[in-house]
Computed example of a mutant assay.
Amino acid sequence: MRSVFLAAALAAVSSSAALAQSCDAEPQFAAHRTANGVIRAQYNAVSRGEWPEAIHFGEEVVAGSGAPGHKVAAHTNLCAAYAATGEYELAIAACDAAIEMRDDAWRAMNNRGVALWLSGDRAAAVEAFQAANAASSGEDEVEANLAMAQCTTAG
């Protein structure tokens, strides 16, 4: 009987450890790329975590007279860069600008959720992740963020 109990206890600990390991501790940004060379450079900077460069390229595009799609991408990537550097109000404003330009901008919704999550507003972050999920078609970053939020709030 003791060995059955020990085996059950070890199985419970192992499955709890596996669940804890499958929970991402940090939300994931969704970088946005277009054919525009500056946006591609900004996308690459976001992908590498080079936040000052991502901000520089994004501000350049936003200040210019580029196409609306490029501005949506620049705002979306600016949101990620500002959030990563702790400038949550600027991040949320950048995401809001992208969403105002394109109401189905799931990457901006996702990054808005990340900014809210990092700022400590978990309930609003989950709402943003859910909106991103509704606007997207099962994108990896969005699904990972929803799973992270569920896993984090369940524990």
Rank of each mutant, 00 (worst) to 15 (best):
L116P: 00
A25K: 15
W117A: 05
Y43I: 10
L19V: 13
A84G: 01
Q21N: 14
T76Y: 11
H75T: 07
I99P: 00
V46Y: 05
T76C: 02
E89C: 10
R107G: 01
Q42T: 05
A17G: 14
L116M: 03
K71D: 11
I99H: 00
V13I: 15
R102G: 01
G120H: 01
Y82V: 07
P68A: 15
I55R: 08
M109D: 02
A73Q: 04
A8T: 03
A20S: 09
A105P: 10
L19Y: 15
A45E: 06
A18C: 10
R102S: 02
T76L: 06
E87V: 02
S65W: 07
I92S: 02
G37E: 11
N77C: 05
W51R: 02
A94G: 04
R107W: 09
R48C: 01
V46S: 08
G58K: 02
V38M: 11
S16I: 14
A9M: 15
V126D: 03
H56N: 14
N36L: 01
G120D: 11
V13T: 10
F57R: 10
E100P: 00
A115H: 03
H75E: 15
A97G: 07
A124F: 03
Q130L: 06
I99E: 02
G86W: 05
M101I: 02
A7T: 07
G49M: 07
F29R: 04
A30R: 12
D24L: 15
I39F: 08
S22F: 13
W51P: 00
A108R: 01
S119R: 07
G37T: 12
E89M: 12
A30L: 13
E59L: 00
C95E: 07
A20L: 12
A31L: 05
I39P: 02
F57L: 08
R102H: 00
R112V: 10
G49D: 07
E60C: 00
E100S: 15
G120S: 04
S14V: 14
A67P: 11
F29E: 03
G66S: 01
T76V: 05
A115T: 05
Q42C: 02
M109F: 00
F57N: 10
A54E: 12
A84I: 04
E26A: 03
A108V: 00
H32D: 02
D24R: 15
D121V: 07
L90F: 06
A63D: 08
A18V: 10
N77Y: 00
R112S: 09
G86K: 04
A9F: 14
A9C: 14
S16T: 14
A25E: 13
M109K: 03
A45C: 08
A9L: 15
A30D: 09
H56L: 15
V61Y: 12
R40K: 13
G49P: 04
Q130E: 15
C95A: 11
A91R: 05
V62Y: 13
Y82A: 03
A124I: 08
G120N: 09
V38K: 12
E89Y: 14
L116W: 04
M101D: 04
D121S: 12
E87I: 01
V126Y: 10
A91I: 10
C23I: 06
A8P: 04
A67D: 15
A97Y: 13
H70A: 13
E127D: 13
Q21T: 14
A17S: 15
E87A: 11
E89W: 15
C95D: 14
A93R: 05
E53Q: 09
A54T: 07
D24T: 10
F29P: 05
L90A: 11
A80C: 09
R122D: 11
A123N: 06
A74W: 05
D103W: 09
